[in-house]
Design a protein around this nucleic acid. Sequence first.
DNA 1: ATAAACTTTCAATATTTATTGAAAGTTTAA
DNA 2: TTAAACTTTCAATAAATATTGAAAGTTTAT
Lengths: 165, 165
Amino acid sequence: MEYIEAKNKFIQAWGTLGSSWGINKAMAQIHALLLISPEALTTEEIMEELKISRGNANMNIRALIDWGIVEKEHRIGERKEYFSTGKDILELARQVSKERRKREIAPILKVLEQVQDVSGDNEKLTNEFKNVTEDLKGFTQKVDGMIEKFTRSDKNWFYKLLMKL
Amino acid sequence: MEYIEAKNKFIQAWGTLGSSWGINKAMAQIHALLLISPEALTTEEIMEELKISRGNANMNIRALIDWGIVEKEHRIGERKEYFSTGKDILELARQVSKERRKREIAPILKVLEQVQDVSGDNEKLTNEFKNVTEDLKGFTQKVDGMIEKFTRSDKNWFYKLLMKL
DNA sequence: ATAAACTTTCAATATTTATTGAAAGTTTAA
DNA sequence: TTAAACTTTCAATAAATATTGAAAGTTTAT
């Protein structure tokens, strides 16, 4: 398969995958492009490659920086900003896990906690509610702890874990 | 907190969480409602509780059934269909993992494989491409294996795993 | 201080995705 | 059969989300 075809296929697939993970297409595609690019790219180059507008490129590059998975590079004698992403996939997974933990798990745990001290006269209803939200909270906390460990641990932890399974 | 307030808060939060996981709001809310309901519910009751249309209710109930996390119940002497979801959170997580594995991991692995035999004259470009997609494939396969194990294993596997950490 | 080079913002617009509701389809009991 | 009771479908519509592009903002070299 020709490079250009492979590249487009990969960028396309990454974009689609992103969409089903709450990451918008452009953001995922910019990331894919940076992943396979040996050199850091400018906003201009990203716009050109992905056929997206300046505003779109800029906003999504910022979002990626905000997620901690893309970095600015400055080159001496140049005004332009160059962008790159780390090529270590495990590190990428760690960063994404960390962000999602912060953005999603923390809020749902908060709600589960709030909702825990429910009161009402229909015991069957309130009991079921308490049971389910309690279980959910317990499970969520366990998963949370696991992700926390994953994000903090050293590079080999994950592979050691895989061995144990 | 009053039952009705807690219930609404929970359903709302579950809907929001669903949205950032590629599960639409109504689908997530129907699931939330069934989770906390001690009895199986009819389409009518679900429509009423969530203030959604018949079509919406029906389609999303079907989708939940399709995901394997909601079940039909028939009652003797009644024409109506009743719907319920399992209350075992671990089992739910297992089912969701299984579906996402099928729907998301399998396709991306397929693309990564296809794209692997790239050719081109720019060695720097093609090498970087091969390296990244190879790494990505390796990592994805490892995660895939882990999920596969999780979905197949017995009830205590997950808790034993947590102990090991 | 100026202007060229670049980045950011955001209202307008387009695209995608979800929802409605009425009509068509199906099942069951009599 | 028939008709009531229920479920499913789907074109139209609404809602949510992403994208554009031009204008405003910022930075830097001179």
